[in-house]
Design a protein around this nucleic acid. Sequence first.
DNA 1: CGTGACTTAAAAGTCATACTTATTTGATGG
DNA 2: CCATCAAATAAGTATGACTTTTAAGTCACG
Lengths: 243, 243
Amino acid sequence: MDEQGPEGRGQRPRGRGLHDRVLESLGPAITAGDYPPGTVLRTDELERRYDVSRTVVREAVRVLESMHLVESRRRVGVTVRPTEEWDVFDPQVIRWRLAGPDRPRQLRSLTALRSAIEPAAAGLAAEHATPEQCAELTGHALNMVATSRGQQLPAYLVHDVAFHRVILRASGNEMFARLGDVVAEVLTGRTQHRVMFSDPDPEAVTLHVRVAEAVRAGDAEAAERYTKEITVGALRELDILAP
Amino acid sequence: MDEQGPEGRGQRPRGRGLHDRVLESLGPAITAGDYPPGTVLRTDELERRYDVSRTVVREAVRVLESMHLVESRRRVGVTVRPTEEWDVFDPQVIRWRLAGPDRPRQLRSLTALRSAIEPAAAGLAAEHATPEQCAELTGHALNMVATSRGQQLPAYLVHDVAFHRVILRASGNEMFARLGDVVAEVLTGRTQHRVMFSDPDPEAVTLHVRVAEAVRAGDAEAAERYTKEITVGALRELDILAP
DNA sequence: CGTGACTTAAAAGTCATACTTATTTGATGG
DNA sequence: CCATCAAATAAGTATGACTTTTAAGTCACG
């Protein structure tokens, strides 16, 4: 029907299918508040809006429903659910909200989460980390030191993210490990907002080295304490940037 | 807008749809390890197995895919993904795993998570709780004391769950608040396994009262410390029950 | 013997349509 | 005024035809 040539053939579209495209449009819109809770969407309306078949819309809606973003009821339609019922731990929801107007609030929530989780993870890591993980850890810490001065923020960020990922993984707790992506997102976001400022806080850099040492030494208490200091610093930083 | 639905909109609206039935069969099976990572399912096979249409199967698969439990690829099929990629924070995944053979491991992970989150939440609650929430808290704590002796575990559990829910909500952090259901699940599961034993640990009961007092007094440090003691006790208990 | 280009087939993805079922609304009648 | 039942509506399900992607097999060529 449409003999229009394929748009970007060499592109790398995030959505691998039509339902993904619908999802990647509806999800951000809902989490951004474009459709406030209580808003009712109708399947056939969405069909027309996105010019896709019923099948595609239903699959997208089903996923949104599994995230508790919407509720689909017969004879009513697809209703946007109250914010407090959303699955705020769903990585996709987190991504959408971080990309929307709710970003500051979301960053604050996530940083508070980090502040609770990461110290505990570091403590566990001190008890469970393998020699390889200890080596990775010190490696990243040293690289953080090396890149902490002279406009090398991108390189610094890479090692910062990797460091925290190793800690979370080494904790031996699968749930902690799964937060690696979230932490990465927060760290990346923070760097972007800090790019106008100076190099990373030297104290924070030192603390990372201390954490690596503590984990290697198997000193759970120290690993936890130093990590706590790192995350408290992150919280303070947020208050400074947007009081 | 009164909602006096006879069934309520509880979590078990028996057979809300065919796709739900497929999901509630496939989800537990995958998380239980009946289909090990790498296993390939084909849509038409599932159609026949559950005697439903293509539409229904696809919707179920799409939801499983959004949980990162499976990956659907053309010319290949629906592949079960490696365990470490699953969305272990998804409430539904948690429910499934708690109902399966992985339950002990899952309970341990979740208790470690509690141990990290709840003290932080209590600290925040001490700073943000409204007078009403403080009243609820002391009310539940007192009721826990009242029901802590003489085979009243079910009643005790109700207040225990409610207590922790209020703490998490009062923290003012939406992500902490969302963990209320998870904590409820853990506490309920623990009680079921303890039913053969005696009444709840008197020390734990006292600690809950102390937490309520600390929150009311706005003493974040104390609230955090006492809550930490509660969760550490829960961790110890797990080691005793299944070392 | 590889190696790269071409063909093939398998399975998911998409669409259109007809039909079913639950639920709200509101009209009817006690 | 309330209960009951009928109609309208939108989601849910089924089906079959068609498209697209891609793993894998084939074959000619260096």
